[in-house]
Simulated scan of single mutants.
Amino acid sequence: MSRDNIVIRDITPADNKEIAQVIRDVLVELGAPKVGTAYEDKTLDCMAETYSKPKAAYFVVSSNKKVIGGAGIAQLDNCDENVCELQKMYFLPEARGLGLGEKMINTCLDKARELGFEQCYLETLPYMKAATKLYTKVGFKSLKEPLGNTGHFSCNVWMIKRL
């Protein structure tokens, strides 16, 4: 895949079905539980509408008009502090190894700063080693316990970054 035809852009309603399928396919590929992860989120099938609220954004990565990944930020649920959460960052196999993960994280963090957030939190699974390595590379630090209450009880790796 050539980097020349890859675009990072705001999600649109027309992307809802594709990004939901990308996320579910990646979770199945990685052997993630369907319960207690993004797989069962009610918002997965209406991502454009979910992220159209204030202090939220979701971006998709497309190649030749096909959605191959995405990531977003929104206020961390059940948290009184000025903390956003990096949410639903998943890429199809053909999008991996191209530097898109770091680009997407930086796009989300730039938006988080623009929206006035002070910190960014994330949750992942312990066997998502490549993702955890990338999060550490861009400055996320491990936490001993979760913040807020995302409902993703199967995700037991928690990280945070000061913006």
Rank of each mutant, 00 (worst) to 15 (best):
R3L: 14
N5W: 07
I6V: 07
V7W: 05
V7K: 15
V7P: 04
R9L: 10
R9G: 08
P13H: 03
A14C: 09
A14R: 12
I19S: 04
A20I: 01
V22G: 00
I23Q: 09
I23C: 15
D25Y: 10
V26W: 03
V26S: 05
L27A: 14
L27P: 04
V28N: 06
E29R: 14
E29V: 05
L30F: 15
P33D: 13
P33G: 12
P33R: 10
K34W: 09
A38S: 04
Y39G: 05
D41K: 06
D41C: 04
D41A: 12
D41H: 12
D41W: 02
K42Y: 13
L44T: 06
C46L: 10
C46E: 13
M47S: 07
A48K: 12
E49C: 03
T50W: 10
T50D: 11
S52D: 15
K53H: 10
K53L: 12
P54L: 10
K55Q: 09
A56V: 10
A57S: 09
A57D: 05
F59H: 13
F59S: 11
F59P: 07
F59E: 10
V61R: 03
S62R: 14
K66V: 14
K66C: 10
V67W: 01
G70P: 00
A71W: 00
G72R: 02
D77K: 15
C79W: 02
C79S: 12
C79I: 05
D80A: 09
E81F: 03
E81K: 11
E81V: 03
N82D: 05
V83H: 07
V83I: 15
E85L: 08
Q87L: 14
K88N: 14
K88S: 12
K88V: 11
Y90E: 04
Y90T: 06
L92M: 13
L92V: 04
E94P: 04
A95W: 01
L98M: 15
L98V: 10
L98R: 15
G99C: 11
G99P: 04
L100K: 06
L100T: 06
G101N: 02
G101Q: 00
E102D: 13
E102V: 14
E102Y: 09
M104Y: 00
I105Q: 00
L109C: 02
L109A: 03
L109T: 04
K111G: 02
A112R: 09
A112N: 09
A112E: 07
R113W: 06
E114A: 14
G116C: 05
E118F: 08
E118N: 14
Y121C: 00
L122Q: 00
T124F: 03
L125C: 11
L125I: 14
Y127N: 08
Y127E: 08
T132M: 15
K133Q: 06
L134F: 03
Y135S: 02
T136G: 08
K137I: 05
V138S: 02
G139S: 05
S142V: 01
L143Q: 01
L143I: 02
K144I: 03
E145F: 12
P146Y: 00
L147V: 05
G148H: 01
N149G: 12
N149R: 14
N149C: 10
T150F: 00
G151A: 09
H152L: 01
F153K: 12
F153Q: 11
F153Y: 15
S154A: 15
C155V: 09
N156L: 03
N156T: 08
V157E: 02
V157N: 02
I160V: 09
I160L: 06
K161M: 07
K161W: 04
R162K: 15
R162H: 13
